[in-house]
Write a protein that binds this DNA or RNA. Structure first.
Lengths: 187, 187
DNA sequence: GGGCGCATGTAATGAGTTACATGATTGA
DNA sequence: TCAATCATGTAACTCATTACATGCGCCC
């Protein structure tokens, strides 16, 4: 049981909601913090209700499609706090898909590798721009913190990448064109 | 097709190897960069051989268990370069499980939340220590880069967390004990 | 003789995504 | 009248993990 149920339970701690409403909120306001998709949320809500952590009541407004309104139970509230404590105390291990490429950098001509990394830098800048124009404080303290955290890490990543590119340019000039593929046996 | 096949193909670009050897190397030297498990690697190698990207030959040394030695094919080398270019150029979107907790920070008494975050900080420090004592340059340029990258991000994360804790301590003192849970509707 | 290293996997399970399905209502 | 919004899902699939299975050789 992980972040996703923490998110759902947390939203239900604030107020009872139906699935569509939850998904809307996530898509509109939390798309930068989570990538959970709608069917996942629906399925998880269903499971949480079967395990007694949330309660469901079906509601109908006029002739619109019926809604399933979820409320958190007391067991759910306890679970929420447990998951929350655990999540706050734990530092997730970091591994990045982008590091695989880095490891095999030398299999490409240095100039091409640099071009590709510059593309990476560009798309990183785009992400940062996108984050920065997002409204900062229309959510609570916590959401603001999380958003700020991501933005901070995005900047750190950008800085590192820019520095790495610069270094690689230097060593390329210093060493001539192609590095000698001498010692293998350790990548 | 993602980082994992890039890793396997990359290792076979350097030299032909059998599965056990690959898994050993990953476990010993790349455990900080990837979390791929053995059965996954075996299964992926099998699939790569069925799709023609690698070639297998079975080998026996004395009476030890027979080995399956994998070599990359020309199609595999092309795929490797494609995956590599793609990986280098792309900036992965960042989302962190740890941000879920941050969002719901205010559901805990401020002091407890701070304690938990201090635990997170501690485990972060442990990770950093672990990384720093690892031998730096016994691998190629690329692996060194990747390792350094992770370490850098770990430090950034640590710095941010320490600052966030400090800020939360300040606002806690300034605002008295419990923040007013006034406006809901937006977490 | 007991445990670790070598070397390969299988089976069961879980988590999550994508693409699709349905059907009424509201607004331009 | 046409598209978007509301509201719920299902089915098929992919990807990866965990736990287990097997059996010989080597070293203490």
């Amino acid at each position: 049981m992980g972040e996703r149920e923490l998110l759902l339970l947390g939203m239900l701690m604030v107020q009872s909601q139906h699935g569509y409403q939850i998904n809307e909120f996530i898509e509109r306001n939390l798309s930068r913090v989570t990538d959970m998709k709608k069917p996942t949320a629906y399925a998880l809500l269903e499971r949480l209700s079967q395990t007694g952590y949330v309660r469901v009541r079906t509601e109908q407004q006029g002739k619109r499609p019926p809604r399933k309104v979820y409320s958190i139970t007391s067991a759910g509230a306890i679970l929420f706090l447990d998951l929350l404590r655990d999540n706050l105390a734990r530092a997730e291990r970091m591994t990045f898909a982008g590091d695989m490429g880095l490891m095999f950098l030398d299999h490409l001509p240095r100039e091409e590798a640099l071009d590709l990394l510059r593309q990476r830098l560009g798309s990183l800048d785009a992400q940062i721009g996108n984050h920065e124009q997002a409204p900062k404080h229309e959510h609570g303290l916590g959401v603001g913190l999380a958003l700020e955290h991501i933005l901070f890490l995005l900047h750190a990543e950008r800085d590192w990448l820019a520095a790495a590119i610069a270094r690689l340019q230097d060593t390329a000039q210093a060493a001539g064109v192609a590095a000698d593929p001498g010692k293998q046996e350790h990548l």
